[in-house]
């Protein structure tokens, strides 16, 4: 199936140069395939730890609050449907990506106590414009992974907006002295992949800035929306 996809004629933005299809040489074709392969490798994959822990929480919820447990199953199935069926699309409507983040955040809410200060602001005027699926997922995931503590007060502050055909993500979280070394290590890989993926998808047209201070960690991401979707 992968092979079939990669032999398709190049389309849309992931092609390496702005040339038209007629101008495609063998070398460009090979370069395109190489990038597609790299992208497939770098595609966001759902974190099994997230999945198993969420199932474990739902498992507990069934006994104490069956209605909330049912809601959580619906939330999780929508999240999985998006990752499994749309995760390999080149572009999805921005609203789909935002819905996914909503499912993710609500499922994380079940897992953590109320004393984590969680904000999710969306101000989007072009919800149908295209973005690569799951392009924001890694940043949100990392914010939860490193932003939550029970010893100190902690926060995760996410805001998404659009302006002049561009998408803006701002994601900030509290940083904690006694970080969990295991999760920091795996978070590093996720961030590196996300960065590489952005470099391949939007080589010159995105901006990713990471602001790290002693007690906060912030990601600013800007990328162009695909308005032809």
């Amino acid at each position: 199936m992968d092979k079939e996809q990669s032999t398709k004629k190049p389309q849309l933005s992931a092609k390496p140069s702005g040339n038209s299809i007629e101008g495609t040489t063998l070398q460009q074709q090979l370069e395109y395939e190489r990038i597609q392969q790299q992208l497939a490798f770098l595609n966001y994959q759902i974190n099994p730890h997230f999945l198993m822990n969420t199932l474990n929480n739902i498992h507990a919820l069934i006994a104490i609050d069956p209605e909330r447990a049912q809601d959580a199953v619906v939330e999780l199935s929508r999240l999985l449907r998006y990752v499994l069926y749309e995760g390999d699309h080149q572009f999805v409507p921005l609203q789909r990506e935002i819905d996914f983040l909503g499912h993710y955040i609500r499922l994380m809410r079940i897992r953590f106590t109320a004393d984590v200060d969680l904000k999710f602001n969306v101000q989007v005027d072009q919800p149908h414009a295209g973005v690569p699926p799951l392009v924001l997922a890694t940043f949100i995931e990392n914010a939860f992974k490193h932003g939550v503590s029970y010893v100190e007060s902690s926060f995760v502050d996410i805001s998404i907006s659009t302006k002049d055909g561009h998408l803006f993500l701002s994601c900030r979280n509290s940083k904690h002295a006694m970080g969990n070394s295991l999760s920091v290590a795996s978070g590093g890989v996720g961030l590196r992949n996300a960065r590489q993926r952005l470099n391949l998808l939007f080589p010159d047209s995105h901006r990713l800035v990471i602001n790290e201070t002693a007690d906060t960690y912030g990601v600013e991401l800007e990328l162009p929306l695909n308005l032809d979707l």
Binding site: N56, A60, A63, I64, R111, F112
Partner: peptide
């Protein structure tokens, strides 16, 4: 367990 529901399940 850091997750309240997971802890509740374990305790049960």
């Amino acid at each position: 367990d850091d997750e309240p529901l997971a802890l509740l399940q374990l305790a049960t």
